[in-house]
Design a protein around this nucleic acid. Structure first.
Length: 132
DNA sequence: GCCAACGTTGGC
DNA sequence: GCCAACGTTGGC
């Protein structure tokens, strides 16, 4: 799940606890949100000057209507911080590592919420020297 | 500022 | 339904 750290960073999530992941305005990303179930885990990705995966979140709600949208058919989920990466996994590392380099993160700038396979998940944790 | 990717819009 | 034009995201 991508975020602009100037607007909403890992630190803000840790300080604030449970947070509504709102503002998604892309149908494919929305559909990915709707696939999520309470208890699912997700990566937080910071875009900007130092793009990379910075931490692990837990989905703590079913998807529900986005209260920040007055029109349209948009969804949100609630998330909680679980663990910050021991070291962030940079976009370059993702790009040049087989298995995770095929994530849409690398070449689909408009998709802000995307699925991660078990293999990709495990490898990301390994590169980030992090376990849950 | 430029560019790749790709979603959306609207003419036909 | 097709496709050109345009807009948005986000890396660089």
């Amino acid at each position: 799940m991508k975020t602009n750290p100037e607007l909403f960073s890992w630190e803000m999530l840790e300080n604030g606890g449970k947070t509504r992941w709102d503002g998604v305005r892309n149908y494919q990303a929305r559909n990915n949100l709707r696939e999520m179930k309470p208890g699912d885990l997700a990566f937080m990705y910071h875009h900007g000057p130092e793009p990379g995966v910075v931490g692990i979140m837990k989905i703590v709600s079913e998807s529900y209507d986005d209260p920040t949208s007055s029109e349209g058919n948009w969804s949100v989920v609630d998330v909680e911080p679980i663990k910050k990466f021991e070291r962030p996994v940079s976009l370059d590392e993702i790009r040049y590592t087989p298995v995770i380099c095929i994530l849409p993160l690398v070449n689909q700038p408009k998709l802000s919420v995307m699925p991660v396979s078990q293999d990709q998940w495990d490898l990301m944790l390994k590169i980030g020297k992090t376990s849950i």
